[in-house]
């Protein structure tokens, strides 16, 4: 299914499924998130790790090829910033979207921050870092 229409439907279904699942797991709930990151409640951690385990097996069975993506200089600093920001705001790039959809209006501010951060990163990368950061979507 690589036609534009097929892509569109598949992406829509994936987005609906991701939003629905992530919300029902409780990733939009800051208390649940902090309990996961402080290991007081392993439920969400197990959901995530369990998903990774299933995906590893599924990709192995389906022979999905590994990407030759390299480890570049931006990975560790970027991940440190991301983890810190996630713990503070409770949002990874998808979570503030479902927070707003659940009625948490201040998450709009988180989204605004994410937007500014993404703009800043592309600008700073073009101007200063010049890293080939790769893309996770390919």
């Amino acid at each position: 299914m690589r036609s534009r229409g097929g892509m569109l439907v598949a992406t829509m279904v994936a987005g609906l499924g991701l939003g629905f699942t992530v919300t029902n797991i409780g990733f939009g709930d800051y208390a649940e998130l902090n309990r996961m990151f402080t290991f007081q409640d392993l439920r969400m951690l197990l959901a995530f790790a369990g998903a990774v385990a299933i995906i590893v097996v599924a990709y192995a069975i389906l022979r999905v090829r590994r990407s030759p993506a390299r480890i570049h200089a931006g990975v560790i600093p970027g991940a440190v910033l991301f983890g810190t920001g996630w713990a503070i705001s409770g949002g990874c790039p998808a979570i503030p979207i479902i927070q707003v959809a659940s009625g948490y209006l201040p998450a709009i501010v988180t989204i605004a921050g994410v937007v500014v951060g993404i703009w800043l990163c592309r600008w700073a990368n073009a101007r200063y870092f010049q890293l080939d950061r790769g893309s996770c979507g390919l």
Binding site: G78, F82, G85, S89, G91, V109, G117
Partner: peptide
């Protein structure tokens, strides 16, 4: 936090 997430 959002800026850190987006940038990171």
């Amino acid at each position: 936090g959002g800026v850190l997430v987006g940038f990171g």
